[in-house]
Amino acid sequence: MTQPQPPQPPQPLHVRRRATGGDTELSLDVPSDLDYVGRAVELIADQLPGGPLSPRRIRFNFRTAFAEALANAIAYGNHRDPGRVVHVRVEVAHDAVRVHVTDEGNGFDPKGVPDPTLPERLEREDGRGLFVLKSLMDQVAFNEKGNSVCLTLRAG
């Protein structure tokens, strides 16, 4: 008879840090499991060098948008496939912070997402992710394939 397996301990997350000139780059690979989103966000937010962003913008805009992009990449990009990871790269320059979130999926067309604030969509449970991202960031840019998003928060 097969013994039930004990729950697997969560995989540790490691932030890699690189400094070039006055800029800093943090990078992290996140397993395709939504339980990692909160931990990954806190890990990066805690290690974000002070400077371009106010504590308030880090606490709210950065955390919310990063959580949003990461959850989208895990759920819709990688379809929670344990064999895939989400690659995160955060560039911290004097004038802005740029977060690149890249999944290993086939990409999607951001233009095909309807406005979640329309009266007929307001009571839907889902469909607000991209809208929230765009509302909280200074710029949101997808690559051509649609599997990588760059979120920009300008200094302030």
């Binding site: 606490r59 709210f60 955390r63 919310t64 959580a67 949003e68 959850a71 009571e123 839907r124 449970e125 889902d126 469909g127 607000r128 992710g129 809208f131 929230v132």
Partner: peptide, 14 residues
């Protein structure tokens, strides 16, 4: 509460 993402908003709607 520090932040709420769109899934959090969605669960409140539901």
């Amino acid at each position: 509460t520090g932040y709420i993402d769109s899934s959090g908003l969605g669960v409140l709607v539901s």
